[in-house]
Amino acid sequence: MTLLLSPGLAQAGIALLELLQRRPLSAPELISGLPKIGGMSSSDALSLAEALDWLDINEAGQLQTSAAGLKVHDAEGYEAALRCILLHYVETQNPDWLQNAVYGRSRVLNFCPVGVRQVFVEAGLAGAPDDEVVDFWDWLAGIARGLQKDHLLAIGREGERLTIAHEEARTGTPPRWVAIESNQDGYDVLSVEAANNRALLSIEVKASRGGMSGTLHLTRHEWEIALDRPLHLFHLWDLTCAPPRLATVGMEEMAVHIPTDAGAGGWESVEVPFQAFESLFGPALP
């Protein structure tokens, strides 16, 4: 049975680790001498610490903090400690809701238990997606996928960050990072057409560390979404350059590389070489 995590239980676990750093105790001494720790029963705090592999037993039979427990104890601040706890929780408990991480954090926050969701909130993981927040959710998605294709995700995120910086410099308005919330929208970034035109512009981002020998993979879903959008662009990033180069590809330019269904067959994805757009690559805005 999966342990049910909550902010209160997490705080009790943190308090237990702090206590054991000051005074080693055996499990019976802990439970009999301290009925409550951090507002929770000492037995619940002990169960959490045992489940998340935070404890070792010394030669005297006393509880001592393991290497995993020390990472929580030594975390810089409450949010950092909660993030560490969430990582340990996922690694040791493999909760059912974890499978939703491959679809974006919104799915996780909607389907995980209320207590776990509140831990994500108090850990600062449900708010603005700074680099550390994005890295956390990417790590969680990697665990859910069995760490498959993580290197491709890292390349994609690098391109998305570059597009966000480019669009803010171009329009003066921070764009919305859609892909961090859900990967089912069919595009990655939502910007505006121009500084003096607030019409919404959707952008699908593709990045490559192979230069012009690299390729982009476009799914049928992504293309059909692009066709339905009033304004849509593709950003292709060549990461072999310093700084990276950008090709801004419009719908007409991309359409010539899109296959059509024939007979009983239907296409699902297409691979297009970056070289097909070589003339469009140039410096991005700082």
Results as ranks from 00 to 15, higher is better:
265 G>S: 14
80 A>S: 09
285 L>A: 02
251 M>W: 13
94 N>V: 15
230 P>Y: 06
227 L>C: 00
119 V>A: 02
44 D>S: 12
197 N>R: 12
5 L>K: 01
139 W>G: 03
281 F>S: 07
152 L>M: 10
6 S>C: 05
49 A>D: 02
219 T>N: 11
163 T>P: 00
193 E>G: 07
212 M>C: 03
22 R>H: 09
76 E>A: 12
211 G>C: 06
112 C>H: 05
260 T>R: 15
159 G>H: 06
229 R>K: 13
102 V>Q: 12
46 L>V: 00
41 S>Y: 09
225 I>S: 15
77 G>F: 03
178 V>T: 13
83 R>W: 04
79 E>A: 09
187 Y>N: 03
259 P>Q: 11
96 D>L: 14
10 A>L: 05
118 Q>Y: 10
175 P>A: 02
261 D>C: 15
264 A>F: 14
61 G>R: 02
256 V>M: 15
112 C>S: 10
17 L>G: 02
111 F>W: 08
263 G>C: 07
34 L>Q: 14
76 E>T: 13
56 D>L: 11
8 G>S: 08
99 Q>F: 12
45 A>K: 01
231 L>E: 10
77 G>R: 02
185 D>R: 09
157 R>M: 04
198 R>H: 08
200 L>D: 07
41 S>V: 00
246 L>C: 02
233 L>G: 07
191 S>G: 01
38 G>H: 00
99 Q>R: 15
21 Q>H: 14
52 L>K: 05
107 R>I: 01
147 L>K: 15
245 R>Y: 13
3 L>G: 01
136 F>T: 07
271 E>P: 14
285 L>Q: 07
175 P>L: 11
193 E>M: 12
63 L>V: 02
140 L>Q: 03
40 M>H: 04
112 C>A: 14
229 R>N: 03
87 L>V: 15
4 L>Q: 05
69 G>V: 10
127 G>P: 01
43 S>N: 04
117 R>E: 10
271 E>H: 14
195 A>C: 09
113 P>A: 05
122 E>R: 09
58 N>W: 11
241 C>N: 14
243 P>W: 06
2 T>C: 06
134 V>Q: 04
99 Q>V: 15
210 G>P: 03
118 Q>S: 12
101 A>Q: 06
86 L>S: 14
276 A>L: 02
135 D>N: 01
231 L>S: 12
35 P>D: 02
71 K>G: 08
104 G>N: 05
140 L>H: 06
160 E>H: 06
272 V>H: 05
124 G>N: 04
111 F>H: 04
214 G>Y: 08
155 I>G: 00
268 E>S: 14
180 I>C: 03
189 V>P: 02
202 S>E: 06
230 P>W: 03
35 P>N: 10
130 D>R: 10
225 I>M: 15
108 V>Q: 06
267 W>I: 11
173 T>M: 11
240 T>R: 09
149 K>E: 15
183 N>M: 08
164 I>C: 08
37 I>P: 05
114 V>Y: 12
212 M>K: 01
97 W>I: 05
238 D>M: 02
131 D>L: 15
127 G>Y: 06
22 R>T: 03
95 P>F: 07
53 D>K: 12
102 V>L: 04
47 S>V: 00
197 N>S: 09
162 L>D: 09
